[in-house]
Amino acid sequence: MKTRAVVAAVLLLLVTLVSCRSSVVEESTTVNPSEEELITVGFSQLGAESDWRSTNTESMLTALSAENGYNLIYKNGQQKQSNQITAIRMFIQQEVDYIVLAPATETGWDTVLEEAKEAGIPVILVDRRVDVENDNLYTCWVGSDFELEGQKMATWIYDYTCMIGMAPEDVHIVNIQGSLGSTAQIGRSKGLSDAVRIYGWDLLDEVCGDFTETKGREGMAQLLQEYDHINVVYCENDNEAIGAIDAIEAAGKTVGSDIKNGEIMVVSFDGINIKALEYAKIGKISCIAECNPLHGPRVQALIEAIEAGETPDKFNYVSETLFSSVSGITSIEVEGKSYSITPVT
């Protein structure tokens, strides 16, 4: 008897808990009386693995806020495609007006995007692209040209090494790659490998740093044990660069752009991480190719265009620059277009 009383009490508690939570929920979703006018957007972010990603999420949350007339449902996929697919299916069930997707991988999206299309929900991709048989499965894409970023960085390295008078075969590069298979990794690695082929640099090794500080440190420590003549470290994002610099310093070497005198030059991508920008200021990171994470306003503009009945451009690039504190190079030229360098001080 007593048992049952205890159990009943606990049960009651649980029920109240559940209903409490639900009532909170109700408030948060129906607080705005003009909900009819709000545009509901389901946003499936792939994760929160780097500062770039956090800034990207933040930009999306501010642009698609209630004040701007949106009801944003944000879901973190925790780096897993399966989580994202589940999230999109939930959006479809909830009948959102738009789906914004930052895909974790490029492949494997056909089925779920087909479902969204059948449900008549436009899908806007951000950041990475998807590889689907039918391009009409998504409305448009917003993001960076990662290969161009890689090309810009490679050109900068080439210009710099030429400026200090180094022979290309004396440039010993290691590449700390991002998450293998991501659009950013593929683009940035291609930018480097093309340059290696054209300029004749010595690419010693490529390891995966998964866009994280820990893996960047681990990977660099391993490379330093294997090779003792590395002079350029090409990190595919800021977090990896911070980890790599840690490893280099722990091994008793110095980072900097004076590679003729034994310093190891670190270059990186993104330019979001405050620590990395600090490093760029004091010269620990010689050059950062910006990867603009502020996609929110761009997505907002696209949604407004679609609402107004326009057909937006399929591919929308955000503008990006290079950050460097190394003096001597003020601009670079890639495929006939000139890009200026933003000095950081």
Binding site: V15, V18, S22, S23, E26, Q93
Partner: peptide, 26 residues
């Protein structure tokens, strides 16, 4: 009991997707 209470609670308070059988199937 807890499962059903939770699900019914979700239908009442959150509505939307939970009212459709497909949510359960998902």
């Amino acid at each position: 009991a807890i499962f059903f209470l939770m699900y019914i609670g979700a239908i009442i308070f959150q509505g939307g997707g939970f009212t459709k059988p497909q949510m359960l199937f998902n």
